[in-house]
């Protein structure tokens, strides 16, 4: 199986804090890769490097064969991103924003259909600033899908959603995978990882603690047990 995303030997430090310490993992094409790890494990830093927002001090990043730090607009159009920090303009209404963002792509999806699918139409008359956390998540996910991405980076996509909302997001993520999209999901949820992952990465202290199919990583043990044995203080 080919890899759509590869991170090899990434190092990144912010002052004296080492965020990535030789991080290496890959996301197979057309599969869902779930990246688990405690706060401070470097998940967000790794995603930032993969979407071109950050540049590692050492190591190489390849997404669809390109270095995302140097890649141009056509590369960015092939990659859908949902950032944990949101980043959606605050002063506008959801549908106006989605229609605007769709104009940045040569062949965007049907904005109204995506909005309908993710329930954005239910809060279409509310300014982005006033949306609840869950509504913002839905809007950010809709925005990530606008350009028919080949690779989709979702930083904690179901965080803050109620159970129905989570299920909707999981269905949608699985659907994207079934349509051939490579999906990388960072999460704190074992349930999410167990439900979604074709490929599993457990990160700890800026390194990969385990990587492989869910079965090969857990070897019959509960995912939680494996996770805690790999990521408890001192495990690194």
């Amino acid at each position: 199986m080919t890899d759509a995303v590869t991170l090899s030997g990434l190092h990144r430090a912010f002052g004296r804090v080492t965020a990535l310490d030789g991080l290496t993992w890959a996301a197979p094409a057309g599969r869902i890769t779930a990246v688990l790890g405690p706060n401070g494990a470097g998940k967000t830093t790794a995603i930032e490097c993969a979407v071109g927002l950050g540049r590692p001090d050492a190591g190489t990043v390849r997404v669809l064969g390109s270095d995302p730090w140097l890649a141009g607009a056509d590369h960015r159009a092939r990659v859908g991103v949902m950032l944990q920090s949101g980043g959606l303009p605050n002063g506008t209404k959801p549908l106006r924003l989605l229609h605007h963002l769709s104009r940045l792509y040569a062949d965007p999806v049907d904005v109204d259909a995506v909005a309908q699918r993710l329930g954005v139409t239910d809060f279409a008359s509310t300014t982005v600033r006033r949306l609840s956390g869950g509504q913002k998540q839905r809007l950010a996910l809709a925005a990530a899908l606008l350009g028919r991405p080949e690779v989709l980076f979702l930083d904690e996509p179901a965080a803050g959603l109620d159970p129905h909302g989570r299920l909707d997001v999981w269905d949608l993520v699985a659907e994207q995978r079934d349509a051939g999209t490579t999906v990388i999901v960072t999460t704190h949820s074992f349930e999410e990882a167990a439900r979604l992952a074709d490929h599993l990465v457990i990160m700890n202290a800026g390194r990969t603690a385990a990587e492989g199919t869910p079965d090969s990583v857990t070897a019959g043990r509960p995912l939680e047990d494996v996770y805690f044995s790999l990521t408890r203080k001192g495990a690194a």
């Binding site: 071109g52 920090s85 980043g87 959606l88």
Partner: peptide, 14 residues
Amino acid sequence: RYAVLRYLGVTPLG
């Protein structure tokens, strides 16, 4: 502040 610049940086707008 609200990461809009970061977000638009990862869209084709750049």
